[in-house]
């Protein structure tokens, strides 16, 4: 803004009318400069608001938009990938548990068969011992002739005792193995049940996650749409503001026209517009006129106002 100033030496020697004219010109020039400065500042701020709004909308699109979109980084894709991985793992786990359960069942059955076989072997061993005892009695009765038979019968008894000993060990192991295998089978069954429970919970959670994902996608779409709508609204308002700011230029031209008319009236001649905008530190409009630097008048000065064919804001393409 420009403050008031003391009358210049030139003004000191001017007539009151001339002094007043120059004062008017000076004030108009101040108004011109101040409004231009304010308009430029407003225009700059308006541009900044627009740029920031666009940058913010773009940022939302690139961050939140990526999460809610259909790309690799979207929540839906990431969660679905995780769901697939867990589902595949569950499938493998169920298959493995079923296989282990079948193996445990077969081992248990085999153990029972071994126990039964051991009982058969015990019976055979008992019969062998009885047979060897009877043979030994008969060999004793034959005396020296029965000695070779006695040796064989003793070997048979020793062999049947060894078989009975081994059979007892087999039976003991089979008996001991049975509860262990039962335990393994129960554990595998329990694991199978837990796997089923987990699978059911996982299915329930997966549905909840899918619902939540859908909600996120909807929220992101709504946010992006709202962002676009708000940005469009800001652009529309800023465009209207831009049009309003342009009135400063039109007003400036009219004020320069006033100065031109004023200068023309003072010299008894015609108005000498248009006078171009000058930098704030350049010569004043009055000085331009005084030095004859102002160019020819408004191009429309010599034209009839009725010949205007386009109004403000209108456009014509050739």
């Amino acid at each position: 803004m420009h403050g008031g100033s003391a009358p210049s030496a030139t003004n000191m020697h001017s007539t009151p009318t001339e002094f007043a004219r120059r004062e008017i010109e000076t004030e108009i020039e101040r108004v011109l400069r101040d409004t231009e400065s304010s308009t430029l500042s407003l225009g700059e701020d308006l541009g900044l608001i627009l740029r920031e709004s666009r940058a913010f909308t773009d940022q939302i699109k690139h961050s939140i938009g990526a999460l809610g979109g259909e790309g690799d980084k979207s929540v839906a894709v990431v969660l679905e990938s995780q769901n697939r991985t867990v589902a595949e793992f569950l499938q493998v786990l169920r298959k493995t548990v079923a296989t282990q359960s079948a193996i445990a069942e077969r081992v248990l059955e085999t153990s029972r068969i071994v126990a039964q076989a051991a009982q058969s072997v015990a019976s055979i061993s008992m019969q062998s011992r009885m047979l060897s005892l009877n043979t030994m009695i008969e060999a004793e009765r034959l005396g020296s002739q029965g000695r070779p038979v006695m040796v064989i019968a003793q070997e048979m008894r020793e062999l049947s005792e060894n078989i009975a000993g081994s059979n007892q060990e087999i039976t003991r192991l089979a008996v001991a193995l049975t509860p262990l295998l039962d335990n393994v089978k129960r554990n595998i069954g329990s694991l199978n049940e837990r796997t089923d429970e987990f699978g059911q919970r996982f299915d329930t959670e997966r549905e909840r996650i899918r619902q939540a994902t859908t909600n996120v996608e909807t929220a992101v779409r709504d946010t992006l749409r709202a962002g676009d709508e708000r940005l469009a609204s800001i652009v529309e308002v800023s465009n209207r503001s831009l049009i309003s700011l342009q009135s400063q230029d039109i007003v400036s031209q009219r004020l320069r026209r006033v100065i031109s008319l004023n200068a023309g009236a003072a010299t008894g001649g015609q108005a000498r517009g248009p006078i171009g905008s000058q930098p704030c530190d350049g010569p004043s409009v009055a000085e331009q006129i005084a030095r004859g630097e102002a160019t020819d008048g408004f191009l429309s000065d010599s034209l009839s106002p009725e010949s205007a064919t386009l109004d403000s804001g209108e456009m014509m393409m050739f």
Partner: peptide
């Protein structure tokens, strides 16, 4: 040889399109 004539104040979207 001008291709168009726009009267101020201009509408930004129209000017940009042109």
């Amino acid at each position: 040889g001008a291709k168009g004539w726009i009267v101020k104040p201009f509408k930004p979207e129209l000017l940009l399109a042109a």
